[in-house]
Amino acid sequence: MNPVNYLYLAALLFTIGAAGVLIRRNAIVVFMCVELMLNACNLAFVAFSRMHGNLDGQIIAFFTMVVAAAEVVVGLAIIVSLFRSRHSASVDDASLMKL
């Protein structure tokens, strides 16, 4: 199969992820969308690796997975503690990041 199709898929997934981050309010869903974007990138990396015939893309995909895993740990912890203190997982409720 033509590897370019994988790239189209990656772009589609990334767009879905980005739209989800921007539109949804629930922190968990936003978080999942971020993961979706990351995985879209992974897919693109692997596809490029295949296209160019070297392993660089696959190696970077591993790195991304590690970072994503670490991010899940930290991110979920933050979301949980946010939910505990505010009884809500909506990102719009936490608007203290301003002067």
């Binding site: 980005a18 981050v21 921007l22 309010r25 936003v30 990102v91 719009d92 936490a94 608007s95 203290l96 990041m97 301003k98 002067l99």
Partner: peptide
């Protein structure tokens, strides 16, 4: 300019995008 800094994570995300 300060008004852009509204504290909503999603609006920051939009500007990043």
């Amino acid at each position: 300019l300060r008004k852009l800094q509204n504290g909503f994570a999603r609006s920051y995300a939009v500007s990043m995008l």
